[in-house]
Simulated assay, not measured.
Amino acid sequence: MTSTTAVSRPPAAMPLVGHYVPEILSLARRGLVWAVLYGTFARASRGGCVPLNDSVEPVCYNATLDPSPFTWFVMALLFVIALGSAAKATRTAVINRTLRIAATALWAVPLLAAVLALTSFLTASPEALWNGLPPANVTVQLTSD
């Protein structure tokens, strides 16, 4: 008498990241808010007229700072990397840490980029705008009256 026993496999476990969908959606919303805030507040313009040397006609300038698309790319890359790391994690502590680090990076990156851009833009002397290289993402137009 032979008996056949069926070998049963345990059901495939649902990936741990599936339990964190609300946190992932919250992370995406916060990242989007910071991306919009960066796009809104990383803009500036300034202009004026400055006499060059002893010339009669002053040189007028208008400098415009625009947000960098590179910052948005870095934010998107951080989000995708965080999701990939969370999806591969096998412990809830690792997923929590990954999402917490990603949340911090998604506000720190655009804030740092905006502060650095605005600081370099506002502290640049007008002469540096046409005698040297303007700060990143700055468009300079020169005219003479």
Rank of each mutant, 00 (worst) to 15 (best):
57 E>G: 05
21 V>A: 12
76 A>P: 06
141 Q>Y: 05
84 G>Q: 09
48 G>Y: 13
143 T>E: 13
59 V>Q: 07
46 R>H: 11
82 A>H: 01
22 P>Y: 03
43 R>E: 06
92 T>E: 13
109 V>W: 01
113 A>E: 00
103 A>C: 10
49 C>G: 06
69 P>W: 05
25 L>C: 09
98 T>V: 05
138 V>Y: 03
143 T>N: 15
41 F>G: 09
18 G>F: 09
69 P>C: 04
86 A>D: 02
73 F>R: 14
101 I>C: 08
1 M>F: 11
14 M>F: 12
37 L>H: 14
130 W>E: 09
53 N>I: 02
29 R>H: 14
118 L>G: 05
42 A>F: 03
47 G>R: 01
107 W>K: 09
133 L>F: 11
132 G>L: 08
2 T>S: 08
111 L>P: 01
139 T>G: 05
64 T>D: 14
27 L>R: 00
113 A>D: 01
33 V>W: 11
127 E>W: 13
141 Q>K: 14
5 T>K: 13
75 M>I: 11
2 T>H: 04
78 L>W: 02
139 T>S: 14
114 A>H: 07
88 K>D: 07
105 A>S: 12
31 G>H: 03
55 S>L: 11
93 A>C: 06
10 P>A: 04
29 R>I: 15
2 T>V: 12
89 A>N: 04
86 A>R: 00
120 S>G: 04
